[in-house]
Design a protein around this nucleic acid. Structure first.
Lengths: 225, 225
DNA sequence: CCCGAACCTGAAAAAAGCCTGAACCTTTAC
DNA sequence: GTAAAGGTTCAGGCTTTTTTCAGGTTCGGG
């Protein structure tokens, strides 16, 4: 993890760096606003600690410009100003936390933990088999730039196949998982849906097919090219 | 957007609710810790405002248990305690921001904005999907120079769609987030509003549609040109 | 080579889900 | 208080999904 510290008080900057080091951050330090912004724009920091009053360029502007450049790293604003207006301005410039000096190091570290904790963000779930992809959040099956929408049962079936790789899946298994443990669905229902899926795979021109293994079931296979 | 306020000072709770309302949050209020936790566990909130000293169960425990249950909503901890130890404890329990009373409402709202701002989004009061824009402060949906005003429910729905990009959103989710998880709204209510929104999108001639995925829900889609 | 079991698939019926106009109710603004 | 805006309910009609069915094809063992 890398942190950028933009702070003109060199002693404080160094202390911050050491504190962060104790929680496994490598820190870079800038003593003025311009260089702070430049470094921040590189985009490879996981945290930015920003003073407000700085030579050359103030912390508000830096935060604003970083956000404008789509830099998403958490910004911790650190300042002696206690006015509510400053806090509001700081947070609205794009900062994620506003901490007023003086503060204890334990508090700062707790903030840092809170800010960096939520990194397990938007996980776009997707199953894939070769280049065939099943998007679990949009429910569509795609290969290259072609996409088809799957109905619910089609989706469940495909989901099962794609989670099983190349393993054979029996009709019984499919019926149990898709139609439910105790349903009166028959083998033919599965067959019909397999047929639907094959049509869609053909439409995608995907190099993948659903192969039949008589008396055993079905499985996904790559169709070599 | 829905907020859960857990605060035993009823007057303050009500004030908070009103403040949040002005930034388009529907709030549910709990006056004790136990019910606060229960409600929070429903997982339908986009923000939790938590007092620390509460009857039945303190804010630290609530935050900890919510996180344990994988509830990811931002937690704003709100308290009179100014001890560094309390702050550290609060943040480490899972809170995302620690605000000490007394505070001004403008500060609270700035925190809320900072907390609910999706990472990577720059302009705070506008969501966008392609060229379609939803102005969060005027509730206007616009495309190019055309604009329509959305009602509150229409707005909430659109807000959810636009924060979710192209992901499918189920009717249950929509009902829980727009009408509240213990409401008796039915699927048809959602359908009616989807219908309203479609009319407005059509009026805007926006290249965006609300697609139906039968048995899954709805999602935004670009209508290719 | 022949037969039956297993499988495929188009079509159509049945069921489930969805859309929407309109009437009616509730809240808000003045 | 009143009107307008917003919200809810309802019913009939429409669309898509799911099931059913029937005739055809494939496969493997005798």
């Amino acid at each position: 993890m890398r942190a950028l510290i933009v702070e003109d008080d060199k002693a404080l900057a160094r202390t911050l760096g050491e504190m962060l080091k104790s929680v496994h951050f490598e820190s870079d330090i800038c003593n003025d606003g311009e260089s702070g912004l430049d470094w921040g724009l590189s985009g490879d920091y996981d945290l930015v600690v920003l003073d407000i009053m700085l030579p050359m360029k103030d912390g508000f502007s830096i935060a604003r410009e970083l956000r404008k450049a789509k830099i998403a790293a958490p910004i911790l604003m650190l300042t002696a100003r206690t006015e509510t207006d400053d806090k509001v301005r700081g947070l609205d410039s794009g900062a994620d936390y506003y901490l007023t000096k003086p503060f204890e190091m334990s508090e700062l570290l707790a903030c840092v933990r809170a800010l960096t904790r939520r990194q397990g963000e938007v996980v776009m779930d997707e199953l894939s088999f070769g280049d065939l992809k099943l998007n679990l959040s949009t429910c569509d099956l795609s290969w290259g730039d072609k996409k088809v929408r799957l109905g619910k049962k089609e989706f469940s079936l495909m989901h099962i196949f794609m989670s099983n790789g190349e393993a054979v899946v029996s009709k019984d298994t499919l019926i149990n998982k898709v139609w439910g443990f105790e349903s009166d669905a028959e083998d033919n229902n599965v067959e019909v849906y397999i047929s639907f899926l094959r049509k869609k795979l053909a439409f995608l021109k995907a190099p993948v097919q659903i192969a039949t293994l008589r008396k055993f079931g079905y499985r996904l296979e790559r169709t070599d090219t």
